[in-house]
């Protein structure tokens, strides 16, 4: 199977140089390398620049609404757990308006890969600051600079019950591809936060800025992603050094493992033609 970068004659409409190109390429290569059946692979997206991805990758897609990818993906996965489910959303989408769903999805530990295009701005609405923007960052919505401290998504993920927490860099697609592959192979909720330069609206956190700071966790021989306290400490690194790679992983039972109705087969395969409710009547006599 070949996943062309062009689907149905359309090219991605991102700005030239956008970090999303690297993410799309990494995802396509990961899906190809994993030999996933495109029909059985569903990419659920939100709204924003990055979440247009389902338009440009040849797998099944569901573009939902801003902030709401994870519940839609959860519904799809609960109804048919044989599908491979990936989500794609931006930092505003997943860590801002969708923050509630994000935390509860991690508690739940459904088997899915959550890719967040973290560019620290709202791109599609012209560059307002996002929950991950640095303090003091200026934009049309914050002309005097952001007053709040930024949210730390990886720390949040580790304490909220995510069982796989990773960070990639859009400027290193081969490394990101490997992270996505690992995330998919992990049995549980896997967060892949991707540092994604926005060449149009974020003049601070540029490719260069990241290149000076990122380093691979796997190069650090002593790093143990099963060590939760170490992972938390590592997740706090930002200003001078930013690790990429798998920060944290743990094995935990899936939400869906505990759901009796889908022990034998996916919900969608159950026969609904003539459900017998005679037994249920007995409660009411």
């Amino acid at each position: 199977m070949i996943l062309d970068t062009i689907q149905k004659g359309r090219k991605p409409d991102w700005c030239p140089g956008c970090g999303n190109f690297g993410i799309l390429m990494a995802l396509k290569q990961a899906v190809t390398e994993l030999k996933l059946n495109p029909a059985e692979t569903v990419l659920v997206s939100g709204i924003g620049c990055g979440p247009k991805m389902p338009l440009w990758i040849d797998v099944s897609g569901f573009q939902s609404i801003h902030g709401r990818t994870l519940p839609v993906a959860t519904g799809i996965k609960l109804a048919n757990h044989r599908l491979n489910v990936f989500t794609t959303a931006g930092d505003g989408d997943c860590y801002g308006i969708g923050m509630g769903h994000f935390i509860h999805a991690m508690r739940r530990n459904m088997d899915m890969v959550c890719i967040v295009h973290n560019n620290q701005v709202y791109g599609l609405t012209k560059g307002q600051t996002s929950p991950t923007s640095d303090q003091g960052a200026k934009s049309l919505s914050t002309p005097a600079g952001v007053i709040e401290v930024p949210t730390r998504p990886l720390s949040l993920a580790i304490v909220s019950g995510a069982t796989f927490v990773a960070r990639g860099f859009a400027g290193d697609a081969p490394h990101l591809k490997n992270l996505i592959i690992e995330a998919h192979k992990h049995r549980g909720f896997a967060l892949v936060d991707v540092l994604q330069p926005c060449v149009t609206f974020n003049k601070t956190n540029t490719y260069e800025w990241f290149r000076e700071r990122v380093y691979k966790l796997e190069d650090e021989k002593s790093y143990d992603p099963k060590n939760k306290m170490l992972a938390l400490k590592t997740a706090d690194k930002w200003n001078t050094k930013i690790p990429i790679g798998v920060y944290y992983r743990e094995d935990r039972e899936l939400y869906s493992d505990k759901v009796a109705a889908i022990k034998d087969m996916p919900l969608v395969e159950q026969n609904i033609d003539n459900v017998n409710i005679e037994e249920l009547y007995k409660d009411f006599y």
Partner: peptide, 22 residues
């Protein structure tokens, strides 16, 4: 499957996701 969700937004969204899956 009855899922008590974090809010009503997630409630209808999961139902829509499940509906999409069939």
């Amino acid at each position: 499957i009855m899922k008590h969700t974090e809010d009503e937004i997630a409630g209808i969204l999961m139902a829509i996701g499940a509906g999409h899956a069939g």
